[in-house]
Design a protein around this nucleic acid. Structure first.
Length: 582
DNA sequence: GCCGTTTTCGGCCCGACTGTTTTCAGTCG
């Protein structure tokens, strides 16, 4: 079992325990363990197999959970989970996805009315059986009915790139409200997470009611879910929830820190505060005086809040309770990469394969974006749907690039290709063709359902080919649409390091592949990441910023990313000395 | 279930809002 599978088991146990109203701290222990293992930069199996290390060395893994991990690794199953599933049908967990219905009341529905599916719950609400239960009323019944339809949709988080225009429009709209003194988006949106479940807006104002009125008039709002003195929640026509908090200026930093999260980061921060005899909440950092009264010692800015705990003001992208607190202890935080650091794009398509723009248009667009170099990497012939290029067409394209180069000294256009890694192994173009390319990215588009061993072998084969420069979208995931294929990333890292090959962070918002955790792991292996847009149009080149944001979440610096270098430096990174042909 | 310069028990982040209550439990972030 890999880390993701083990994490999924622990998460499921946590769900089921929650249903049983087990000790909430025990539940948290399982959730913590799931998150820790999922975010681990190496396979937990490797730690278990290493006689010099122990699973209990991992924070949050004690003797019991270490035993459970070992059992999962050895047998692929866990008796405890089987017992829980014998008591609770897994379908009841769907009830927890209904907004406002948590584990306590969902468990009551199951016990008192034997409701185990969304359909049964709908029927029970419609026949008004639910309102007779203790803790439920007519209003709850209506809320549940409305929530059932949302349950499926709400489970899906939207791409960060799709949240951005909504967030920008919201901020623009709120600027029209009078009495808004400060304003900032918070939550996973501010942490630049690849997907966003809801939006959080924080406002400083003395006139909360006026601000909330304005918020309610935001164009796409269709429903007000809640409205109190400081907090208001709405839902948009698209089903996205947006939360507003109005706070006084002296609490803005504390509230921004708090609502930016992540929740796990906040839990760790609270624990650190507690160790120092301080209390931290969304209103500020407080010290208890000898007479028992509370004194606020920070809260106006985030810097102030972190400084009160003798911590650096973590960039929001790092606040995931992964390694950031360790980094802070060890010294200054890494200087995260910025969009300005990027010098070139090494993954782009033209209308020769499935891109929309011509070669000349793509080059123009890259030049407008001040790129120093652009690799044209159309698909190879195996990708028939994309009108992939065989050797003859490819060489013709390269000849065109050669002629264009003569007229353009302001941008270096590289003769590249995105060469398919074939189902049976091997590459889609002969070596003598690849040898004439400046830059070759290899990737998998077919045979994604093959076994882990098979897919890993195919990728290792590509890495070993001397003409391949990088592996593109190495796990094949499409966020919300397709799971990553089974691949032994550890083996890929080892091979990439041995053969001086790069791994791509594909910047397309639906890919972002490698993801942040895998990029951090690649960094630990000393493998440079190349951020490529995979642009299929001129606008597609703008996706670079999404890739950079994801790289920041991985803690990558300018030095960790290959295409912050000049093209000559990138070549040296690959162990090649030859200059591109002019 | 984890953890320990308050160390093997007794803690574990903390507050806002809603609905169903009549002082609070459940849910959410």
């Amino acid at each position: 079992m890999d880390n993701g599978q083990i994490a999924a088991v622990f998460d499921q146990i946590a769900d089921l325990l929650e249903f049983q109203a087990a000790n909430p701290f025990r539940i948290r222990a399982y959730r913590n363990a799931a998150r820790t293992i999922r975010d681990l930069p190496e396979p937990v199996a490797a730690i278990a197999a290493d006689s010099g290390r122990k699973l209990t060395d991992i924070a949050g893994i004690g003797k019991d959970l270490a035993d459970k991990v070992a059992t999962l690794l050895r047998t692929g199953s866990l008796p405890m989970l089987d017992e829980l599933l014998a008591e609770i049908p897994p379908s009841v967990l769907a009830l927890l996805r209904i907004p406002g219905l948590g584990p306590k009341r969902a468990a009551l529905l199951f016990r008192a009315r034997n409701i185990a599916t969304l359909d049964q719950l709908r029927a029970a609400c419609e026949s008004q059986q639910i309102r007779t239960l203790k803790g439920f009323g007519a209003k709850t019944e209506q809320a549940i009915l409305a929530g059932i339809d949302l349950a499926v949709r709400a489970a899906q988080r939207i791409y960060w790139a799709d949240a951005e225009p909504i967030a920008c429009a919201l901020v623009e709209h709120m600027r029209s409200a009078r009495h808004v003194e400060q304003m900032e988006m918070a939550g996973s949106y501010r942490r630049r997470k690849d997907t966003v479940g809801d939006l959080d807006l924080l406002v400083v104002s003395e006139r909360a009611a006026d601000v909330m009125d304005c918020f309610g008039r935001f164009a796409s709002v269709v429903e007000v879910l809640a409205r109190g003195a400081t907090k208001m929640s709405v839902r948009t026509a698209g089903g996205l929830q947006i939360d507003l908090r109005v706070v006084p200026a002296e609490s803005f930093g504390a509230a921004l820190q708090y609502f930016t999260g992540s929740q796990q980061h906040n839990v760790m921060l609270r624990a650190i505060a507690r160790q120092r005899g301080l209390k931290i909440n969304e209103w500020g950092v407080f010290r208890t005086r000898d007479d028992g009264s509370q004194e606020q010692i920070a809260g106006r800015t985030e810097q102030e809040v972190y400084a009160a705990l003798e911590l650096p003001c973590f960039p929001p992208e790092l606040r995931e309770a992964r390694a950031e607190f360790e980094w802070a202890k060890a010294g200054p935080l890494p200087q995260l990469i910025q969009l300005d650091d990027i010098r070139g794009d090494l993954h782009a398509h033209t209308d020769a394969s499935d891109g929309q723009a011509t070669l000349a248009q793509m080059i123009d667009a890259a030049r407008q974006r001040k790129l120093e170099y652009l690799a044209i990497t159309d698909h190879s012939k195996r990708v028939t749907m994309a009108h992939g290029l065989g050797p003859a067409r490819l060489r013709r394209q390269w000849a065109t690039i050669d002629s264009l180069r003569k007229n353009r000294s302001d941008i270096r256009v590289l003769k590249g290709v995105e060469c398919d890694i074939l189902e049976q192994g091997g590459l889609d173009l002969p070596d003598e063709v690849l040898a004439d390319a400046d830059w070759v990215v290899a990737s998998i588009h077919y045979g994604q359902n093959q076994s882990r061993a098979r897919i890993t072998q195919r990728i290792l084969g590509a890495i070993e080919n001397p003409h391949v420069s990088a592996i593109a979208h190495p796990t094949g995931r499409l966020i919300n649409r397709r799971r990553p294929y089974e691949v032994d990333l550890e083996a890929v890292f080892a091979a990439a390091r041995r053969h001086h090959k790069l791994l791509e962070l594909n910047a397309h918002p639906s890919r972002l592949d490698l993801d942040d955790v895998a990029c951090a792991a690649a960094r630990q292996h000393g493998i440079p990441i190349v951020i490529g847009t995979d642009a299929h149009s001129t606008d597609g080149l703008d996706a670079m910023r999404y890739g950079v944001l994801q790289a920041r979440r991985a803690g990558l610096t300018k030095e960790d990313v290959a295409n912050t270098r000049t093209w000559d430096q990138v070549q040296r990174l690959l162990g090649r000395r030859r200059q591109p042909r002019q």
